[in-house]
Every structure is written in structure tokens, then in C-alpha cells.
């Protein structure tokens, strides 16, 4: 075989061409698929919010969203109001579901006012208040939507993650875990905010005690579970002023 592929010039030219070809290819694929991906992500957010308030296609054991085809329609049917809470100011905004919780969290870190999204849904005569939350798991981001009634009792929850371990931390998006939150109180018996702790050894695996502010943890997923507890505590706490105004 010829040795032409060993020369320095050839190597450099090859590297440059390779980078150009691969770079162009990736950029092309990215820009071609971007619009579709953005739409998919929007629909997913709507599906998540609907899931948390109990509008879903769940069968006995698995968690299923309403289908992507009807998601937009169902979203406008069940979600009556989308609110943006900025300090004391509450405004309606029908793009509130697109608020990026991650960006808002870093805004709060810089000392600016964080915009909080809240979705008010109605189903079978009941009113649901759905709030987005976001935090850190073991490997990467975890996030979710929690729906509450006006006394901050959880009516439903949806959790998702970017890269938790399959079979362990990734199980936070399984029914057996998410369903445990239904009926749990976020406030303690004195009416102060306590959050919900994902607890090991709370001797309540069937989760019959709804006022203990605890749900049973997943074996082998301690850090992801702690992340869920933390994001519920830190993010839902911010909504307390709004829920207080509901009582007046």
C-alpha cells in the first residue's frame, strides 16, 4: 500500500476536510429538524401539564399522555387560565407554559425577580393549580409538574429526567412513584409549608398516611429521590403568597 496517507500534508488536509464535512452535515440536520423538535417539545409540555391534572390515557399500570394529535385541543379545553406571577404582580399570559424554568431559576440567582408560571385547570367541576418545578438528580436535570387544589394538597404529579439511571432513578417517571404523591399534603398540620420528602424507611410503602409530608423512596435511587424532595420544597414554596390570596 502506498504511504501517501502518512504524510503530514495529507493528514492535515484530511482533518480539515473531515471537520468541514461533518460540521456541515450536523448543522444541516440540526436546522432541518429544529422546527419539528420545537413543536414536539411544546406539545410535550402541554401533555405534561394535562397529565398532572389527571387528563391522560393511563391504563392500569403505565403512564400515558393524551395523544399528541389532541394535546393542543385538550390543553385549551381544560386549562382555563395561564398565569405569570412576578413578585406581587399576577398577569394572564397564554404563552406561560413556554416559560423556561431553568432560565427563571438562574435569574433568581442573579437577584432578579423570577417569573413563575401557574396553570389553572378545571375538570369535573374541580379546580387544579398546576406548577412547574425543576431541580437536579444524580446525573442531570430532573423536572416535573405538580397539580394542587387551593389548600395545596397534591392532586397529581408528573416527573421527568434527562439522564437518570434506567431501572433506578429513571423510575421517578413510573406510575408507582408518581401516584404516591396524589393526596399528599404540602402543608403541615399547622398550615406551614413543609413540602413532600421522598423518604427511606417511612414504614408506609402503601402510602396510606397522606398528611405525613412523606412518600416512600425508590430503592437504589437515593440521590434522585433527594432531588425530587428538594425541587418540590424550593420551587413550590414560591407559590405560597399566591395560594394565600386565594383564601381571602
Amino acid at each position: 500500500m502506498s504511504k501517501r496517507t502518512d504524510s503530514n500534508v495529507y493528514t492535515i488536509v484530511f482533518a480539515v476536510v473531515m471537520v468541514l464535512v461533518v460540521g456541515t452535515l450536523l448543522a444541516t440536520v440540526f436546522s432541518l429538524t429544529k422546527p419539528t423538535i420545537t413543536t414536539n417539545q411544546k406539545i410535550e409540555k402541554q401533555q405534561n401539564i394535562l397529565y398532572a391534572m389527571g387528563v391522560n390515557d393511563n391504563d392500569e399500570t403505565s403512564a400515558n399522555f393524551v395523544s399528541t394529535k389532541v394535546a393542543q385541543e385538550e390543553f385549551s379545553k381544560y386549562i382555563k387560565k395561564q398565569l405569570v406571577i412576578e413578585g406581587d404582580k399576577v398577569t394572564e399570559n397564554d404563552k406561560a407554559y413556554l416559560i423556561d424554568v431553568k432560565k427563571e431559576q438562574s435569574k433568581a440567582k442573579e437577584g432578579k425577580t423570577r417569573r413563575l408560571a401557574l396553570f389553572i385547570g378545571e375538570k369535573d367541576g374541580k379546580t387544579f393549580y398546576v406548577a412547574p418545578i425543576r431541580g437536579k438528580g444524580l446525573w442531570d436535570a430532573i423536572w416535573g409538574y405538580v397539580s394542587m387544589d387551593k389548600n395545596m394538597i397534591v392532586q397529581g404529579a408528573y416527573f421527568d429526567h434527562k439522564g437518570e439511571t434506567p431501572g433506578l432513578g429513571a423510575n421517578i417517571k413510573q406510575r408507582f412513584f408518581m401516584d404516591d404523591f396524589i393526596g399528599e399534603h404540602l402543608l403541615d398540620d399547622k398550615g406551614n409549608f413543609a413540602g413532600i420528602t421522598v423518604a427511606k424507611g417511612n414504614n408506609d410503602p402503601k402510602n396510606e398516611d397522606k398528611i405525613d409530608n412523606e412518600v416512600d423512596a425508590i430503592a437504589g435511587a437515593t440521590i434522585t429521590g433527594n432531588g425530587v424532595s428538594a425541587m418540590i420544597k424550593s420551587d413550590l414554596k414560591l407559590y405560597i403568597p399566591y395560594f394565600k390570596t386565594l383564601k381571602k
Binding site: T5, D6, Y10, T11, F14, A15, M18, V29
Partner: peptide, 25 residues
Amino acid sequence: NIIPSKIRIIVQLIVVAALVIIVDL
């Protein structure tokens, strides 16, 4: 037959990374 042997590992890495990212997108 065209991969320069000096940088073949890098080329392999780029091929697999590009492939996986395209499939993911």
C-alpha cells in the same frame, strides 16, 4: 484506505459521535 493512520482514532471518534447525534436528532 483514505484515513491517515496518525489520526485514525480521532476520525473513528468523530464518525461514531456524528452518527449517534444525527440518529438522536
